[in-house]
Design a protein around this nucleic acid. Structure first.
Lengths: 192, 192
DNA sequence: GTCTATAAGGGGATAGAC
DNA sequence: GTCTATCCCCTTATAGAC
């Protein structure tokens, strides 16, 4: 399918749809709107994405790829230091949350829009949240702290709060508060 | 209008609509669905609520009333102790978040569903968030702490994280983490 | 008169056909 | 790319039951 079409058409449609989905919400954006914004024919879009759910799933997969890439880049130069990686993880979320077009976490926004849905988009969103939470758990488990479960719960709470709060209030202030709170929590929990 | 109608009809419709809106999302629930669930005629609903936005606004106003009532009840027997009131505020949110049908904060869910909307529902949602944030600011301002702004930011972050996280993960664990973290923050910030 | 039930208008949704 | 099919949305109007 994609081989016969213009090489960049799929990516262009997906990028256009993703921007609309993220800015206005998935439910608020219709397929016609995507077609108009992408400047393509209805045929081409439905050849690449047979249904809206397929398009939404591709959008969330692209978000995941970007987040994984961004996360890997943030921790690339770091030594194998769990505390530093935790700080970098939160700092990377804070950097994302201060981008001018930030409107929240795409996965959390999708789940808020489609509660109880069980399609592939919902699975992708839940997978991302589960994996991120697991990453925090694993990093905290490698720390020498008295109560790893509690520390992981607290860091997760802050990550969730950062995503939620920065979408609606001053994101710079929220991000600064989150990063400093994580620093304090780690400093208080770690020996020395 | 409501004076001539059966006395309980408006409240019954509103309660039915509210449950549907909260459980499935405002956009996902159509007026026909509300009418079917309430077992009323289309005429009656539109007489009480001339448009869906009016019904949604009434739903959010009911949420606000319930939250204000619940908040007042939680702090009624408390002395005029800002720290105790802050702890009670978070504990009350935690209690809400552990209810079995908890799916998130109705106001935050609405704003996630309707970004950029400027009608009365959006105003009600933003008013609630602004008032809650202001309440935290005022309580923290009355504490004898070195950096009230920072403490208020952190408490707000935890409240946001609690609402967001408890909707998707183990709410008991999330609530416990939030209340204990608030306790620790207050204990660390307060003298003595 | 108050309510229910039903039909219909005007629009936009996804999706498919040519 | 346009055109159509089908469905559901919000809303209004009409007709009938108690």
């Amino acid at each position: 399918m994609a081989r016969t079409a213009a090489p960049g058409s799929r990516e262009r449609i997906l990028r256009t749809a993703g921007e609309l989905f993220y800015r206005h919400g998935v439910r608020a954006v219709g397929m016609n709107q995507v077609i108009d914004a992408a400047g393509c024919g209805k045929n081409l879009l439905y050849r690449h994405f047979p249904s809206k759910d397929d398009l939404v799933a591709a959008y969330l997969r692209a978000c995941r790829r970007e987040r994984d890439r961004s996360s890997a880049q943030a921790t690339a130069a770091l030594a194998d230091d769990p505390a530093a990686r935790l700080r970098a993880l939160v700092a990377e979320v804070a950097a994302t949350a201060t981008r001018p077009d930030f409107r929240g976490c795409a996965f959390r926004l999708y789940l808020a829009e489609f509660p109880g849905h069980e399609g592939e988009p919902a699975r992708l969103a839940r997978d991302y949240l589960r994996d991120t939470r697991a990453e925090i758990d694993e990093l905290v488990a490698r720390l020498d702290v008295a109560d790893p479960g509690q520390l992981a719960d607290r860091i997760w709470l802050i990550v969730e709060g950062l995503y939620a709060s920065a979408a609606r209030t001053d994101s710079g202030r929220t991000s600064a508060a989150a990063t400093r709170l994580i620093d304090d929590l780690l400093a208080a929990a770690l020996p020395g």
